[in-house]
């Protein structure tokens, strides 16, 4: 039986906040409601990162996933017809549940094989720093500078590509003015 310390209690609470909405996403019929549950699930993951004393990654999770990606998904969901009604259950229910069971089996294998104490907050506590931001900054602009720059170039291309796709040609404006007259 697991000892119920404050850490374990918070871990169980955060896990519930993550998993229960994640189950809800799959079983709720309304897309909007499942999106709300998805945001709640993201917040739970941020709480798990806090428990691992990874403060920067927790805030980044909150900022990027709960704050920004959810907005992106909102606009995507708005484009689907019948957001809140008549979302029937998937035809591939059996296949999906088989996949879920296999994934669970894989996770159990991973947890039992690896020594997780090396990967949790205990490993961080042994190291000699109290501020993860400085460590992440020096690593990103030192050891992993090429990957960092490549990622930024990739994002720039994505931005330019999105603008060039969305941008309408000038002839569109002329048509509109003619129509109105």
């Amino acid at each position: 039986m697991i000892e119920l310390t404050a850490y374990n209690f918070s871990f169980i609470m955060m896990t519930l906040i993550t998993i229960l909405p994640a189950l809800g996403i799959a079983f709720v019929n309304s897309l909007m409601r499942s999106l709300l549950l998805l945001i709640l699930s993201f917040i739970g993951v941020a709480g798990l990162f806090v428990l691992l004393s990874a403060d920067f990654i927790a805030i980044a999770q909150l900022l990027i996933y709960a704050g920004s990606i959810s907005i992106l998904l909102l606009f995507a969901v708005m484009l689907t017809p019948e957001i809140s009604i008549n979302n029937e259950n998937s035809k591939y229910f059996l296949l999906a549940s088989l996949g879920a069971i296999l994934f669970l089996y894989l996770m159990i294998l991973l947890i039992t094989i690896f020594d997780l104490n090396q990967l949790t907050g205990n490993a961080l506590n042994k190291l000699d720093f109290d501020n993860t931001i400085e460590q992440i900054g020096t690593l990103l602009l030192g050891k992993y500078i090429i990957a960092f720059e490549l990622a930024s170039v990739l994002l720039l291309f994505a931005l330019i590509g999105a603008i060039s796709i969305v941008r309408s040609s000038e002839s569109d404006f002329d048509v509109k003015i003619k129509d109105s007259k």
């Binding site: 945001i39 805030i59 909150l62 900022l63 709960a66 704050g67 959810s70 907005i71 993860t132």
Partner: peptide, 26 residues
């Protein structure tokens, strides 16, 4: 008194955006 104070405020205040959207949509 956290080391990520500014980011924390920025991240938490960005959570108002989906809430406002849900208020309008629902």
């Amino acid at each position: 008194n956290i080391n990520v104070g500014i980011l924390y405020v920025f991240a938490v205040s960005s959570l108002t955006v989906p809430i406002i959207f849900f208020a309008g949509w629902s």
